[in-house]
Simulated assay, not measured.
Amino acid sequence: MSLTFELDPAVDRTLHDGLVALWTDVSNAGGSVGFVPPVTADDVRPEVVKHLSAMAEGRCRLLVGYDEEGAVAATAFLTLNTHRLMRHWLWLYTVMVAPGHQGKGYGRDLMAAAAGAARGIDGIEAIRLTCRGGTGVDRFYASCGYKEVGRVPDAIRVAPGDDRDDIIMLLPLHQY
């Protein structure tokens, strides 16, 4: 079974709660999405509100993957650049697949859906993302066509004595 993707879904309590639950579960499973486990829904909720506010202001767009039961199973936020010299590319943030759905190809489906969504936005020529070194997720993004274009050593402090590289990756969207 595959996910059903929706770009810019209507935000209601069910979606809000689904985002909070997904972000909490992914964080507690060790996903590098801005937190270090353990986290609670109360820890995550302000970040969800911040992302949804940016969406309401038109600064970002939300891509949600729903599983066969209609639950939020995957997400990515496509954040538009406001600087006039950088409006031709966007950021991809908070890329998540529910831990119970990992290993089913949903991450690859999510990345393809995000690229498709970005191609549908006028003037967007590339997607840029960052990821935490030491997790192996950079290999996954590379397998989806992203290229490492930069690295900031020890930029992410996960814990005292545990600093990770901030890896910058880019996916050009033009077709040859």
Rank of each mutant, 00 (worst) to 15 (best):
L110K: 05
M111V: 14
G65H: 01
A117I: 06
L80C: 10
H51T: 08
D67V: 05
P46S: 03
H101P: 01
V95G: 00
E47H: 13
G134N: 08
A142K: 09
G103K: 11
E68P: 01
A41G: 15
V64E: 08
L63R: 06
A71G: 09
D122T: 06
R59E: 13
L85H: 07
I124G: 02
V44G: 11
A74S: 15
G31F: 09
R139H: 13
G123D: 05
T82R: 13
V95L: 00
V48Q: 05
A76F: 05
G116I: 00
L92G: 15
P99I: 03
G31D: 10
V64H: 05
D109F: 01
M86N: 14
G133R: 10
R108H: 13
Q102P: 02
I121M: 15
W89G: 10
W91S: 11
Q102S: 02
Y141I: 01
A117R: 06
G34R: 03
G103Q: 12
G136C: 12
G58Q: 07
L63I: 08
T130E: 14
T82Y: 04
G105S: 12
G31A: 09
W89L: 07
V137Y: 04
L52Q: 12
P46A: 02
Q102G: 01
R84A: 12
M111R: 01
V36R: 04
G65N: 00
L80Y: 11
D109Q: 15
D109M: 11
P46H: 05
H101F: 02
A54P: 02
C60V: 00
R139N: 11
W89K: 15
Y93V: 05
T79C: 12
G34D: 04
M86W: 12
G34N: 05
L78P: 13
V39M: 08
A76Q: 08
Y66D: 01
W89V: 06
L90E: 09
L62R: 06
V137W: 04
L52T: 12
G123I: 06
A115M: 00
G107H: 13
A71M: 08
E47T: 14
E57T: 13
F140P: 13
K104Y: 05
A73G: 10
V39S: 07
V97G: 03
M55Y: 06
A74L: 07
V33F: 09
Y141H: 03
T75Y: 02
G116S: 00
G30Y: 11
V48M: 06
W91E: 14
G120Y: 00
A112E: 12
T40W: 13
T75P: 05
L85F: 00
L78E: 10
L92H: 04
